[in-house]
Design a protein around this nucleic acid. Structure first.
Length: 637
RNA sequence: CGGGUUGUAGCGCAGUGGUAGCGCGCUUGGUUCGGGACCAAGAUGUCCCCGGUUCAAAUCCGGGCAGCCCGACCA
């Protein structure tokens, strides 16, 4: 044992046979950066690199360093606590999964190139899990026998891989990432509702405890056939989702899902008969507007879309007689590999491809090629219209059906129709809502004005219904001994994203300002010089904090004070205790990262005071939770 | 997958045909020590890769690859 000669106090930290050395900064690994690596563009990415939390291995692949991992584990722990609190059970599935499972559900093909596939030495197809519906469903299928086992909610916090086309923003959008994914199995829709509701509550508590302001929005249920879906978003200028929000009520939706109130007046049908006009070299809506001296709202725009893997029944649809449904496996739902549609919408609006894909139950839709357009419309691009179109089903947005005396393409080069009356001159195969809602549109609930925000998705809860349980043949015996297929829900949270988002929300020019719940260490002790009485006082306070169960980092490095202050600010430790000779032997300085000024505290009280601050901060984050719980009490299950 | 842009030391960058550099960081010694110190001495390079032009290529030409930004796509 080494003695700190002459100062009469031996800290466990100076005794090499004891204690956690990560708490001693000289024994930790904290490569902070003064300069910002040039490829970081968002603040959390910059700060995570500068604070020595992460390092890049390759595009979309990041290593967590010890300081970063400590915060990462705290997010995991909060998620775990809240999942456990609603009775969700943690499993530890494998990351690599047999491809057969994915063939069974049909997603081997439909998930697309985002899925990383591999083959082992005996040529077995393997998947590096991008999500785990299949893995959990397969497990539960084998184990679920009786209604008595339901409802059942399971989860994991595990590594996922998605082969993103363009990873960016550091850990915010990596290829390898950690996700908490939970899956519920329920006997009845009511039971699924209850689990869904509990999850929503748990998610709110999780994000609150992480110090995050999240917005929950209606999400795209997509081709997955779900009945309810909610995304938890944080506002972000680099968010890859556009959120549609109402100024007057709490309507909030992802633009992929958002609907709006009809913005048309019930005009009168024209008495004029359908007529053609020559429109030489007039192809776009802008050209037409100028040519006819009218507004885009008078046009019915017709776009030819190509849809892939269409599940919707097209047996009676125009132009689809030759199409046949196929299936990649006996279990997977049969789909049309490809189908073309003519989509009509009012000239001033845009088609929302996500909504269109959902309506068509298609995996994906995209504008058709020029040659397909010519084949379907019998004219070059620019003269498509619904009147007389028989080679493809016409899908009309409601907006198109409320125009009177409209102008459309006439399926002939340089010719348009005028005096078109929807219903009289053409009847769509399907009338639906596929318009892209934008700021300024009106809320379908209250009529208020919409505005837009950009957001990042941190979590998603989703009622899946029977999608996987049917295709993968999950069943149990109900009270009457009858084989019954359970309903399913899935619930995800991006762990890395949540961590990065907390930094996005809590930082200043000097670095991160951690919420107490996520700080890698709750308290930092900075002796101005790690020597003499300063060293002794620092060690005393350190040991006392440790006894009090506070996570403390002691900056024992032989650095100038300025360097230490900068580093501690950068890594965002919420409470800082500076031990300097100018205040000793009586006092030390206590400063909070989110406050400007420090105050003096007697040496003997420093640890206790810091402990109180830590507890109060954690309690404050929990108090928000209590408030929240009051407004929406958790349901019994 | 389209458009743009960049690849030079751990990080940030300069270097338009002739000895590969600067700042920060790193090592050693000294002086310092309350907000990223100073002095001195050092170490560190496949100048992205392959080919070509040239007496001579980081630099010019051709072809690749990779990163980043915008778009498309996506939790």
């Amino acid at each position: 044992m080494r003695k700190t000669a002459g100062f009469g106090y031996t800290s466990p930290l100076t005794n090499p046979s004891t204690k956690d050395y990560s708490m001693k900064l000289s024994r930790n690994f904290l490569p902070t950066l003064r300069e910002v690596p040039s490829d970081a563009v968002i603040v959390s990415h910059k700060l995570m690199l500068r604070a020595g939390m992460i390092r890049k291995l390759s595009n979309g692949l990041y290593t967590y360093l010890p300081i970063g991992l400590r915060s990462f584990r705290k997010v995991e722990r909060i998620i775990r606590e809240e999942m456990d609190a609603i009775g969700s059970l943690e499993f530890k599935p494998t990351v690599v999964v047999p491809g057969d499972l994915w063939k069974e559900s049909g997603r081997w093909d439909s998930f697309g190139p985002d899925m990383l596939k591999a083959r082992n030495r005996v040529d077995l197809d393997l998947v590096v899990s991008p999500t785990a519906e299949e893995a959990f469903t397969a497990l539960i299928r084998d184990e679920l026998a009786s209604y008595r086992q339901l409802p059942l909610t399971v989860y994991q916090i595990n590594t996922k891989y998605r082969d993103e086309i363009r990873p960016r923003y550091g850990v915010m959008r990596g290829r390898e990432f950690t996700m908490k994914d939970a899956y519920s199995f329920n006997a009845t829709p009511e039971s699924l509702d209850a689990t869904y509701h509990d999850m929503a509550g748990a998610y709110r508590r999780i994000f609150r405890r992480c110090g995050l302001s999240v917005l929950s929005v209606k999400a795209d249920a997509g081709a997955m056939g779900g009945t309810g879906s909610e995304e938890f978003m944080v506002e972000s200028t680099v968010g890859d989702n556009t959120l549609i929000l109402c100024r007057s009520c709490d309507y909030a939706a992802n633009v992929e899902k958002a609907a709006c109130k009809g913005d048309w007046t019930e005009g009168k049908a024209t008495a004029e008969k359908l007529a053609t006009i020559d429109t030489p070299n007039v192809k776009t809506i802008e050209d037409l507007t100028a040519f006819l001296k009218t507004t885009p709202r008078a046009f019915i725009k017709t776009l030819i879309y190509r849809a892939v893997n269409v599940e919707l029944d097209l047996s009676s649809a125009p132009g689809c007689a030759a199409l046949k449904k196929t299936s990649s496996s006996p279990e997977a739902p049969a789909t049309y590999a490809e189908a073309l549609f003519a989509v009509c919408i009012r000239g001033d609006l845009d088609v929302n491809e996500t909504k269109l894909a959902a309506v068509l139950k298609a995996r994906e839709v995209s504008l058709a090629s020029d040659s397909d357009v010519e084949r379907i419309t019998g004219a070059p691009v620019g003269f498509a219209g619904p009147v007389g179109l028989v080679s493809a089903p016409v899908v009309a947005d409601e907006s198109a059906m409320h125009i009177h005396d409209a102008v459309t393409g006439a399926l002939k080069l340089d010719v348009h129709y005028t005096h078109v009356e929807p219903g009289r001159d053409f009847t769509p195969w399907m009338t639906t809502d596929v318009r892209t809602v934008k700021a300024g549109d009106r809320c379908p609930v209250c009529g208020g004005e919409f505005y837009e925000k950009k957001g990042n998705e941190l979590g998603h809860i989703f009622k899946l219904g029977y999608k996987y349980t049917k295709s993968m043949h999950v069943s149990y015996l109900d009270e009457n001994g009858k084989a019954t297929v359970p309903l399913m829900g899935c619930y995800g949270i991006g762990v890395d994203r949540t961590l990065a988002s907390a930094i996005e929300e809590h930082h200043d020019d000097d670095g991160i300002i951690w919420p107490m719940s996520l700080a890698p260490f709750q308290v930092a002790i900075v002796p101005v010089k790690f020597d003499g009485e300063m060293k002794e006082a620092a060690l005393r306070i350190h040991d006392e904090l440790e006894r009090l169960g506070v996570e403390v980092l002691l900056d024992d490095r032989d650095e100038r004070p300025g360097v230490k202050f900068k580093d501690i600010d950068l890594i965002g430790i919420p409470v800082r205790i500076v031990v300097g000779s100018k205040n000793l032997p009586a006092n030390v300085e206590l400063k909070l990262r989110n406050e400007k000024d420090a105050r003096l505290v007697p040496v003997a009280e420093a640890a206790g005071e810091a402990k109180r601050i830590v507890d109060a901060a954690l309690a404050a984050l929990d108090a928000l939770e209590a408030l929240d719980a009051e407004s929406s009490p958790p349901t019994g299950r």
